[in-house]
């Protein structure tokens, strides 16, 4: 779990740097996609709910986005955690298939 956590944090850091410095030159309809948000959502959708991989991703992603944003530290952590917990709740309540988890 520790290895997964470190791996996810590094992946999110790289995603953020690529998003803010490289993909900033390639806007889609004027908007640069928030790679960190997309990655956290992806992890939340495809992770095994028995492990807190998605929570770790939300925390790491939130800290990274909050560090680089100008507003109150904690906004992105809250947003990503709420999204991940919402997805967990939705999957537990409405999705029966659990065989497509990629992240342990």
């Amino acid at each position: 779990m520790l290895k997964t956590g470190i791996g996810i944090t590094i992946l999110l850091c790289v995603a953020f740097l690529v998003q803010s410095s490289f993909f900033a030159h390639f806007p889609i309809y004027g908007v640069t996609p928030n790679l960190v948000l997309l990655l956290v959502l992806g992890i939340a959708l495809f992770s095994d709910e028995r492990y807190p991989t998605d929570i770790i991703a939300a925390l790491a992603g939130g800290v990274i986005l909050d560090t680089f944003s100008s507003s109150f530290f904690g906004i992105w952590i809250g947003v990503l955690l709420a999204l991940v917990l919402g997805i967990r709740f939705f999957i537990r309540k409405y999705v029966r298939l659990s065989s497509f988890s990629i992240f342990s």
Binding site: L17, Q19, S20, S21, A24, T32, N34, L65, F68, S69, S70
Partner: peptide, 8 residues
């Protein structure tokens, strides 16, 4: 310039 902060 080295980057854009999310939000633009």
């Amino acid at each position: 310039m080295i980057g854009i902060v999310p939000g633009g």
